[in-house]
């Protein structure tokens, strides 16, 4: 008799656990099917033998895909050398992404500061304006950018009309074009988290800094920057990661020759018909991102910045 309530309690507890799992099941299924699952598929593809017309030969394993990420074998004498082309694309991608992140930071910081220091009701208008580009499809915006910077485009026509230049400047299909495009596309992703941090910034602390003999630059470096660091970190991550894997912008603005990682991977799955290499490149990209993230986040949190106050 005395056991009954205990038993009932245990059953209720079990039922609760069951219902928790049931409730989170849809989310878990989506995460596994859509994110974790494909990762394993990629991993599997990267260690199989490439098919002649794309795809892979199932069940036949080979390290060729991973080998080709970093090395290449000469087709005549089988000597092994570094895959310079791949490595230079890695390097170009990382470099362009870093420059993009820094550029959006330099442009986005004053913008966010400007918005955060407006009166409350006008701030909302500015934030709204920042989000307007999101209304248009990325591809369309990128093609519009092409119109602006091509040799007969707005910029060159205007500069020629003003007599600043005689010959159109070749911007399109250069790394500059990719950089312009990416900065344009990712700038809002930097401004918004920075603004969110700055809006919470207590500007009386800025006054306190001025009061304690800190000039404008010292206040920026010693007070504002440490306090908005969470927004800075978030913005940098939001810009750096997608720029590293950017595909549309380098393709449309960089032309065929200035490849970035995204384009290289696409090439392997498409015309290159080398799926194992494509899969291995994708995973390499992911590892780079994760290492960069870990490094960055740990570095940022170690300096002890907290967002409140």
């Amino acid at each position: 008799m005395a056991r009954e309530p205990e038993l009932a309690a245990r059953q209720a507890h079990r039922a609760e656990i069951r219902s928790r799992w049931l409730l989170s099941a849809p989310a878990l299924i989506i995460i596994f099917v859509a994110a974790v699952g494909p990762l394993f598929v990629m991993l599997a593809y990267s260690v199989m033998v490439r098919g002649d017309y794309g795809d892979v030969r199932f069940g036949e394993f080979s390290s060729e895909g991973w080998f080709n990420v970093f090395f290449q074998r000469d087709i005549f004498d089988d000597t092994i050398t570094y895959a310079d082309a791949h490595l230079s694309i890695f390097w170009r991608s990382i470099r362009l992404s870093l420059i993009t992140t820094v550029s959006t930071l330099i442009l986005g910081f004053p913008t966010a500061y400007f918005i955060a220091t407006r009166p409350r009701h006008t701030r909302e208008v500015w934030v709204f304006l920042i989000t307007i580009p999101f209304w248009t499809n990325l591809l369309i915006r990128t093609f519009a950018m092409q119109e602006v910077i091509r040799n007969e485009g707005v910029v060159n026509t205007l500069l020629q009309a003003l007599g600043v230049i005689d010959q159109p400047i070749q911007i399109l299909y250069t790394d500059w074009a990719i950089l312009f495009g990416m900065v344009y596309v990712y700038l809002p992703l930097m401004v918004l988290p920075l603004y969110a941090s700055m809006e919470r910034l207590d500007f009386r602390l800025v006054e306190a800094g001025y009061d304690l003999y800190a000039g404008r630059f010292a206040v920026l470096r010693r007070i504002i920057l440490p306090l908005v660091k969470p927004g800075l970190v978030a913005g940098s991550i939001l810009v750096f990661i997608p720029s590293l894997g950017a595909y549309v912008t380098p393709r449309v603005l960089g032309g065929g020759k200035n490849m970035m990682l995204g384009n290289l991977i696409e090439l392997q799955f498409g015309a290159g018909r080398n799926w194992p290499l494509g899969a291995a490149l994708s995973i390499t990209l992911m590892v780079i991102v994760m290492v960069a993230l870990l490094f960055y986040v740990r570095n940022a949190s170690r300096s002890g910045a907290t967002g409140h106050g």
């Binding site: 006054e207 440490p226 106050g309």
Partner: peptide
Amino acid sequence: TVFQSYALFPH
């Protein structure tokens, strides 16, 4: 200045 809110630097 000693501020009403103290305005101590939280970081």
